[in-house]
Structures are given as structure tokens and as C-alpha cells.
Design a protein around this nucleic acid. Structure first.
Lengths: 204, 204
DNA sequence: TGTACATCAGTGAACGCGCGTTCACTGATGTAC
DNA sequence: TGTACATCAGTGAACGCGCGTTCACTGATGTAC
């Protein structure tokens, strides 16, 4: 952080990403302009061009911070249940859903297909792939210990990913409001849905 | 269909919905304007206001046609396996994914949270609820015949819905391209993912 | 069947607006000597 | 340590554009007598 009065901001790139994420959460992706983000960061509306080639690049940057945050949380979920792939999987699923409930519109930016495929940064794509790899690793360890049944690891991971992603989508777009209104109710529901899934992956 | 040269279109509402759905698929929701839809339907850009109160209402109308199409397909899936809830569930799941692959951006309009919650038509909401109810019915029959295990029917339905919704989302946003590029490969994958789920719902 | 008239479904000009992006600029910072 | 200068990170005016919406209008249709 530099002094407020300085002509040079000092940390504008991060400030823009932060302000952008906040604005997206408040107003929705479609209603957030590059100009509004600049204004929220307290800077002229052309300043962002010093740090991003265009608006799309800025959105990619925001999405990337989301993936980084997701990666952290998934890591924590794994670390909190060492040696127990089943518990790790449930915890990771809940953590994922938790993030989607906390930042529904950021989640939508990350996974909703808003960013055109061609226009996505390499670093964003990498961050996204890493998230999936974490899941594959859990499943793989579960298979090695005989907890999960054998079979194409990626395919089981994809099933797990689908459940959690779908549930998060339903949660973040408000489709769950009449079944589970509070945050706690949603997470409890997420836990039980994850358990339903687990039974599908278990050895019989 | 009326003659081309007539001043009155005769069926403009449907024509706009159709042109809109097509445009959305081609250019993405964010890049479709009311004016563009009117133009695609061969009509002045103010004509839509005879049939929709504003742009949002038109988008709701388009989403609603999507839900109606989904309802039809789910009905077909159920009808093609009378008395077999397990097969019905898989078929319904695949049908859902199929639709999402066929019309990825329409699917995104329907479920992606683009339409603000407050601004959604009653008829759109009803169409959406009906889709979920169809799924609940399948699960319920499966429980009655002892194929699916007992428990909160809505919760099992929610698990199924999540898998299929999540998979469809991954398919429609292009996240599956490196695992299953062709339409056929995606559907086959969907089938196996649905089977993984089924094992989670089955009595043990 | 013919005519008058109300109603309906289109048109096209006009509005104000916010957007992304460009450009020449200026103030601050860092470095070489 | 002091000075000249290159580089960097901001500013603000200006651009052209497409948007959603309104308005007074006009052509077509349907109905009553």
C-alpha cells in the first residue's frame, strides 16, 4: 500500500482485481464495465490499460484469482483429513460448494462460459486444470487404498466434479432457495448430496 | 406463415423467439441485442415491443421455449422405458445432457443465472419447476419398486439433478473438449457418468 | 355486398446513455555519471 | 550529493458505436350496419 495522495498507485493491478471481483458480486457480470472497476479502484478509466491489454484480460485476471482461491481451499480440505480419501472427497466437495455460495457470481465467471474460449489466458487455463487435478489425485488415492472401486480414474473424478459443480450451480443461481434457504442448510444439504455420490463411488 | 410481403407478420412472437434462440447460439447471450433479434426476424427494431414488454421479457420467453423442449425430451425418455425407473433415470440424464450439448448457450440462458431472479416470468418459473418434478417422479417410482434406496426423495433427486446439470455445464462450456471431443464421445461419457451415479442411488 | 370505423401490428426518426478504446499529455520514479 | 534524463504509471478529452426505449405515425385487418 502506498500513500493515498501519490500519483502512482503502487499496487493497481491487485486493486483492480479486488475491486472487480467485488463489483461483479454486487451487480452481476453483465453490468460491470471496465470503467466502473477503474472508478471503484479510485483511478481514471484508462489506467487499467497499463495492466491489462483489454477488458477481457481483466476479467480473466479476476477469474484466475478465483481459481487460486479454490485451489487453496481444496488443499486445506485434503490436508485436514490425511490418509482418508473418502473424507477428503466430501470435504473438497463441500469446500467447493461453500466457495460457490460465498461468491456466486465469481463462480459463474469461472465456470459459466462467460469468457470466450479463444480469449482465455494460458495462466487462467492452467489454474483451472490444477483444480481438476486435485480431485483426480483424491480419487486416485482412494482407489489405491481400495476405498473407491477400480475403473477409469478420470471418469470417476468427472462424476464427482459433475455432482459438486452442478450442486454449486444450483446453489449459486438461487434454485435451492425453497429447499434450503440459509447458508448452513445449503452446506448440510451439500454434505448429504456428496455422501449420496460417495456411495456411488464406493466398492460394493 | 403469412405471405412475405404483408405488413403484418402474423406470427411474429414465435418468429422472434426462434430467431433469438438461434442468434444466442451463434453469438452468445451477451452479444445478442433486441435490435439484432428483430433484424434477424426481418422486422423493425421496435416491433418486438408489440409482443414483449422489454428485452428481459423476450429473453424469458426464449428460456421458456428451452424448458418446454426439455420437458418434451424428458417425457420421451420416461416413455421409452415404461416400468424401469433405473433406465428412465439414465435416459433422462442423457437426454438432458444431449440438449445441453445441442444448445449450449440456450442451456446457459436457462440455468446460468443470466436472468435476474426478480425479473423472471411466472410461466418461466413454472416451466422450470416442472422439469425438476419429472425427475422427482422417476426417483419416487424407483423407490416404490425397491430399486432405489429409501430416504428423502427430493434429496436423491437433487443429487441426480446435480450430476446431470454439472456434467451438462462442463460439456456446454467446453471443459470436456480434451476428454471427449465429439458429440458421440460426450454422450457415451454422459451415459457412464449417469451409471456411476445410479450405483450411488441403488439399494446396497 | 359495400362502406365506415375501431383496433391492431407494424414503421422509422429520435432520445440520451454508457461503453471500450485511442491519444497526446504529465507527474513521479529510478538510474547513470 | 546533485543533476540530467529515460522510463514508467497515471490523466482526461475525444472518438465512434450500438444499445434500449419512446413517440407519433401508418398500413392492414376485422366487424357492425
Amino acid at each position: 500500500m502506498s500513500t493515498n495522495s501519490s500519483y502512482h498507485h503502487g499496487n493497481l493491478r491487485e486493486a483492480l482485481l479486488e475491486a472487480g471481483a467485488k463489483l461483479i458480486e454486487e451487480k452481476g457480470i453483465a453490468d460491470v464495465s471496465l470503467r466502473a472497476v477503474a472508478k471503484a479502484a479510485g483511478v481514471s478509466h484508462t489506467a487499467p490499460y497499463r495492466h491489462f491489454s483489454d477488458k477481457n484480460a481483466m476479467l480473466c485476471g479476476i477469474a484466475e484469482t478465483g481459481f487460486r482461491l479454490l485451489g487453496q481451499r481444496l488443499g486445506q480440505a485434503v490436508d485436514s483429513h490425511p490418509g482418508h480419501p473418502g473424507l477428503q472427497l466430501t470435504a473438497a466437495g463441500v469446500a467447493y460448494v461453500e466457495l460457490a455460495i460465498e461468491y456466486p457470481r465469481l463462480h459463474n465467471l469461472m465456470f459459466g462460459g462467460v469468457l470466450a474460449h479463444e480469449s482465455v489466458d494460458d495462466s487462467l487455463e492452467e489454474a483451472s486444470n490444477q483444480s481438476f487435478q486435485g480431485l483426480v489425485d483424491i480419487i486416485s488415492r482412494g482407489q489405491q487404498t481400495g476405498l473407491f472401486r477400480a475403473g477409469d480414474t478420470h471418469e470417476l473424478a468427472l462424476t464427482a466434479w459433475s455432482v459438486v459443480h452442478g450442486f454449486a450451480m444450483l446453489a449459486s443461481t438461487g434454485s435451492l432457495e425453497h429447499r434450503a434457504a440459509s447458508r448452513e442448510a445449503k452446506l448440510a444439504l451439500a454434505h448429504r448430496v456428496a455422501d449420496n455420490l460417495l456411495k456411488g463411488l464406493a466398492t460394493r
